[in-house]
Structure formats: C-alpha cells, structure tokens
Nucleic acid binder design. Structure first.
Lengths: 193, 193
DNA sequence: CCTACCGATCGGTAGG
DNA sequence: CCTACCGATCGGTAGG
C-alpha cells in the first residue's frame, strides 16, 4: 500500500522530457515542475539525474521485451513466422505511445557520457540477444550476411520512430511489410526455388 | 586571402562535439577551448550557438549531397543501378570519417527546439527529394509500398552510423549488401519472372 | 580576438 | 517532501 504515485509521476515526466529533449537538454527543474514538485524534492525519490534515466530506460526495455516475449509464447510458427511476430510486437511496443521506449535506442545512448552509456547497454543486452537468436534460427540462402540482416532489420524497425505518424498503417502492418521487404526472396533459399 | 582558419577550426570543433555529445550536451566553452580560444571570442565568428550548428549541419548536408551527385553524374545505369550507386555514395560520405555528417540525421534533429529543428529540415530538403526521385524511378512489383521502401532503405543506411566500425566490410560493400537485401526479389517484377 | 563581466540556470545538499 | 541555499557552469555582451 505504498503510495509511490510521486515516484511514478516523476518517472513519467522524466520519460517524456528525456525522450523529447534528450538527457542533457532536460533539467531536474523541467521534470519536477511537471509533477508540481520543487527541484530538490526529486532527490528524495532518486539519488541523481542519472539514476532517474537508468530507471526510465530499464522500464522502456522491459516494456518492449515483455511485448516480444508474450508474442513468442503464443507463437508456434516456423522461424520466419516467429521472427515476423517478434517484429510486430517490437514495433507495437515502440510506436504504441509508451513514452519510456523513446529512450531505448542507441542513438539516444550515443550522446551520453561513456560510463552512463555502458550501463544502458547492459540493460538492453538480454533483449538484443533474444532478437539475435530469432534471426539465427531463420534459414537463409548462401551468401546472405546474417549479421547484416539482423542489424538492418532492427535498424529499419527502430527507424520508424523517426517517421511514424498515427493515421496511416498500423505498427503491426508496418512491421509485416518491412519483414516482407526482406523475407520474400531470402525465404526462397529454404524452399529450394 | 582571408585567413578564416579560426572559423574553420571552430566549425571542426563544433562538428566533433555536437556529433558526440549532442547540441545541449556541448558548451561554447568546450568548443572554444578545443581551438584555444576564449568562450566570448566565438561570437566574433558566429552570432550564436544555434548559428554554429546551422553552419555545421549545412556543411554536413553538402558533403553527403555532393558525394551522391558526383556518383550519379558518372552513372549511366538503369534505375536500380543508379539507386545502388547513390546508396554507396551516401554511405561512403556518412561513414568516411567526416565529422560534420554525424549531425545530419533526424535523430539528432528531433531533440532540438522546434524552430531550430525546422531550419535543419529545410537544409536537408533538397537532398531528401533527390533520394525520393531515385526510388520513384525504380520498377517495383505491385503491392510494394514505395514510400515504405524509401524510408526503410534510408533508415537502414543511416542506422549503420550506430554499428559501423572500421576493419570489417567497407562502406561501399555494406551499401551494396543492403541494397541487395531489398532488391533481389523486388527487382524481379521488372524481369517478368 | 581578449578582458571582464552579466543574469540565468544547472545538479545537488543540509536541515528540518 | 519543502526551505533555503551552494558552487559551478551556461550562453552571451560591452568595450576595447
């Protein structure tokens, strides 16, 4: 029965500002004012600005990872279908409106001080290896660079954060179309065409 | 015979810091110290921190655009070949070590104040429409979303900034492999297979 | 370009 | 969580 609504509110506000203005571009005063708190009071809930970001990032990773794990738990398809379902879940989490996920991208991390950046990478680690496992399971024709496929597929999905606007195709449709862009021919390797 | 070495040095230092730490994460003092100048002296060369960024960004866009235009001027291939050559030139400019180009990406722009962000988008405008023209010229099978292809291809290329390290495949090889990932099957539409 | 400086804002803290 | 405050740093300027 602990009323950590204040902590929750701080996290929400931090996610919003960090995602839109970046870490350096956001002040403790921005965040605390958003929740009607005085700047110093934030330090009752978090030990530092960096600790706040770590908490936001962890929750963002968790949100995406759970979305994908749920999708995979329901899936019984072949490797290509599982990969596609994972991509759909990934994009639904990424574009679904959750503010925390905006902070879960290497482009965001790259601008941070090295030590802070490393801690975020650790938080993403298990999710990224999950994704690698899915790509590894897929059959490919000889000569296709599996690592490049993984990086390019993930990059294409994450890049939607830049251009996606509500009102057009749904995140799920976009993910399916993107996977199809890669899959169609590559998939033939396993069909023997 | 104007010795604008100092202006040049400021631009170089700004490109370096903006690219690595972001706009908000870089101070005038970082930049001026890098070139052995006092903070106030920068304002003799540029009217504001924003003006400095605008100049860096403009040069970054110019660098990429010229690389692509040169490649296209030499090219006499079909639309797919021209698109591939443009992608190669794009990636060679992006990964070739020029510090200015790190600032030429929507992910960087997204964190900026809206009015500044808009000015950068204007600077990128002509280059992006050049790229759109190339994608428009390519033959595609029915059902392939041309806009999505363009966004995904460009996203894949730009995403290499995240993971590219010297020592592996060259930027040109990576660009060719990425285009092939998209092209192989899509291209068949025009071959009637 | 330097000197010398401005007011504003920064992340963070002591004490309650 | 607020009060009250700290030293450091910020973008920028006047005057030369």
């Amino acid at each position: 029965m602990v009323p950590d609504n204040r902590r929750r509110a701080l996290l929400d506000a931090a996610a919003k500002f960090f995602g839109r203005r970046g870490f350096a571009g956001t002040s403790i005063r921005d965040i605390s004012a958003e929740v009607g708190m005085l700047p110093g009071s934030m330090y009752y809930h978090f030990s530092s600005k960096e600790a706040l970001l770590l908490a936001v990032h962890e929750e963002g990773v968790h949100h995406i990872e759970e979305s994908v794990r749920r999708a995979l738990a329901k899936s019984s398809g072949n490797p290509w279908q599982r990969l596609e379902e994972a991509c759909v879940a990934h994009l639904e989490a990424l574009l679904g409106g959750n503010e925390y996920v905006q902070v879960v991208t290497p482009q965001f991390t790259r601008l941070l001080p090295a030590d802070l950046s490393k801690q975020l990478v650790v938080q993403r680690d298990s999710y990224e290896s999950l994704f690698a496992t899915l790509v590894d399971a897929v059959e490919l024709p000889r000569g296709v660079n599996r690592r490049l496929l993984r990086l390019t597929l993930l990059g294409s999905l994450n890049w939607t954060l830049i251009w996606y606007r509500k009102g057009g195709d749904s995140p799920a449709q976009i993910a399916q179309e993107i996977v199809r862009l890669f899959r169609v021919r590559l998939d033939e390797g396993s069909d023997g065409i």
